[in-house]
């Protein structure tokens, strides 16, 4: 038996809106520690990892570890039927092939339940080792979203370079080039408006902008975004989810600017 009750139901709505563009189908894993998901996009270039810790739910009952395969587009459609202030409860019986979403308005005068069929999804689960990053940038998420949107009107890829001067986002395309530099900026009134850069080693990596733009769909979840980079490793773009978890996006770097399209083989 699985029963999870989330008072701030809008969080789950925002989560779905933030990941459904990247991933079509995914397995949600439930254990005593929380509700989690790990899924790659169809080309295996990007990965999303979601965690909603059990303590963040008003009620969390999970008798056995279980995995539920869902089509995220369909799930988003269901969650759209919940009001922004509704309490959302997720229910599933052991071995069931459906999941039920229950939406309660704050005053309890309207209660809806939606039942969705589960899918059998055979997906690969990747082990993501704990990494020590060469550089970590924490900045306003709206600022990051704006940068990705602006640069994608100029070029297809972004070079993110971090030095002690700051973090630079660069792109170039048919019509020209663009560079945006954000310097460290901690003396602001509100902590969430600061840009904080921790750098052990200079980093410069190239990424496809269309994936970065997909990631910024998670902007409504958090005022700040944390970008962690190491040379030759995937970037991690992390949005915290209130006090209860996170959504992390991983993106493989491009090898070199003019690299051919062939896939490496082992």
């Amino acid at each position: 038996m699985l029963e999870l009750r989330l008072v701030q139901g809008s969080l789950l709505k925002k989560v779905l809106e933030s990941i459904k563009e990247l991933v079509n189908d995914a397995n949600f894993d439930c254990s005593s520690t929380g509700f989690s998901l790990q899924a790659m996009d169809s080309s295996h270039v990007a990965l999303v990892a979601l965690l909603l810790r059990s303590e963040g739910f008003e009620h969390y009952r999970c008798d056995r570890n279980t995995s539920m395969g869902m089509n995220l587009n369909n799930m988003a459609k269901m969650l759209k039927c919940a009001g922004n202030d509704d309490i959302i409860t997720i229910k599933a019986d052991d071995g069931s092939d459906t999941v039920t979403f229950m939406f309660e308005s704050p005053t309890q005068d309207k209660i809806s339940d939606f039942e969705m069929k589960l899918m059998d999804i055979d997906s690969e689960h990747l082990g993501i080792p704990e990494a020590e990053y060469h550089a970590i940038v924490k900045m306003p998420s709206s600022e990051f979203a704006r940068i990705c949107k602006d640069l994608s009107s100029i070029g297809d890829t972004v070079v993110i370079s971090i030095t002690k001067e700051g973090v630079k986002f660069s792109t170039k395309g048919d019509i020209g080039t663009a560079n945006i530099v954000c310097r460290q900026n901690t003396s602001v009134d509100k902590p969430e408006e600061a840009t904080v850069i921790e750098m052990n080693e200079p980093v410069s990596l190239t990424f496809a902008l269309r994936y970065m733009n997909s990631f910024t769909k998670a902007t409504p979840l958090s005022n700040t975004v944390t970008i962690s980079l190491s040379n030759e490793l995937p970037v991690v773009v992390e949005y915290k989810i209130a006090e209860m978890g996170y959504v992390r996006f991983y993106l493989a770097p491009k090898i070199e600017e003019d690299e051919e399209d062939t896939k490496p083989q082992v």
């Binding site: 295996h44 995995s67 269309r210």
Partner: peptide, 26 residues
């Protein structure tokens, strides 16, 4: 015109254990 990146995440992260239903805690 956008070319796909030439590397995938499976070049960086190894597959973990195959998913079970229900999963036993490791």
């Amino acid at each position: 015109m956008a070319s796909a990146p030439s590397r995938t995440l499976t070049d960086f992260f190894q597959p973990a254990s195959k998913r079970l239903k229900p999963t036993l805690p490791a």
